[in-house]
Write a protein that binds this DNA or RNA. Sequence first.
DNA 1: GTGGAGCGGAGCGGAACGTTCCGTTCCGAG
DNA 2: CTCGGAACGGAACGTTCCGCTCCGCTCCAC
Lengths: 201, 201
Amino acid sequence: MAISERARKAALNDTAILAAARDVFIADKRAPISEVAERAGVGISALYRRYPSKEELLRVLCHDGLKTFIAAVEDAAAEPDGWTAFENFLRTVVIADVHSLTVHLAGTFTPTEEMDDDAARANDLAAVLFERARPSLRSGFVMADVTMLLEMCAAVRIPDAERTRELRERYLTVLLDGIRAGADLPGPTPTDEELGWRWRQ
Amino acid sequence: MAISERARKAALNDTAILAAARDVFIADKRAPISEVAERAGVGISALYRRYPSKEELLRVLCHDGLKTFIAAVEDAAAEPDGWTAFENFLRTVVIADVHSLTVHLAGTFTPTEEMDDDAARANDLAAVLFERARPSLRSGFVMADVTMLLEMCAAVRIPDAERTRELRERYLTVLLDGIRAGADLPGPTPTDEELGWRWRQ
DNA sequence: GTGGAGCGGAGCGGAACGTTCCGTTCCGAG
DNA sequence: CTCGGAACGGAACGTTCCGCTCCGCTCCAC
């Protein structure tokens, strides 16, 4: 049987709802679900037909972000030069606003076991990429610092999404230059404990 | 008449409430007022005796931050070397977490005329300091960029306040090195419109 | 024509929160 | 010791908000 007209419309709603949810929850992670529905141009019931709860929707959104992150690392790893690979990776992740979908949404749901696994995997992959770039980095700069830099980039935010991307690239450039030149950094490096508190509500 | 016992206790509450409000609203600008009272170790009525509304409390808090900012600029301006003055200014402002009290709280209240004036004054003073530092900065870097950098520093945030300060200094160091070395920055500079949207709810 | 998938949105139940208000405490004057 | 009242604690109130349910409608497939 061919895909029915009805099913095709429903599939369109699938993506519209996900896109709307991304936009809305990136702008405000505490936004009401009705806002997502409105943005997607559908009713609330179209949402609840697909996700049993708001929490589940947020979970899926975050998991998608995690997958994007992993894809970005794996993609960047193909580049032979360590620094270039690292830079490309960071630019991709910042442009895609992965941070707003992952760390930023933490606390709005309880993670599944699979997500924990993927998070660990993402960390491992990124660590490999980081090690390859280390020769180009200032001494004392560690992987945990990268997490904070991404967080800082995500803090750049204005209403216009496209312009936000431009500005983030602008300041990522500043950061990239900042982590190559200069003396040792002041203060102890961030610990895992300090970085992971968001996930343990 | 000497200051009465009762009045002294009340004065203690004055500062306790302000300190509590700062801590609570920095952690979450949407926090309920009851949380402030609890943190200050007082009842809700002790709060409402001093401020007619939640909005007024937020206004005062923000205005205090603005004053701290102005004091920091004026203080740093005494330093003869342009770059050093600028760097000291930024470090002071970041350490004092002025940003979390000003821009971050924007939108939770409608500003008074006096606040608008002080904000304009703060901008002017900072611009002077910036111009003195410009010879040390990479080309294409403008005052509006500084605002964004401060925003990025404020995004570094973990539960422990003292540790947060340490980490912010760490990454401010990265930023300071990043804005001196390197080529022209990509993308157009931020406009006033883009920076001021927070204040126009 | 008819069954049912898909959907819109009113409305329910309950949580959260700003503000009010009332009863209590306790300092200090007489 | 008495007592007025400043300062206060916190229950209660009224309102807003929001996640979710559910009923009735639409419209495609057969």
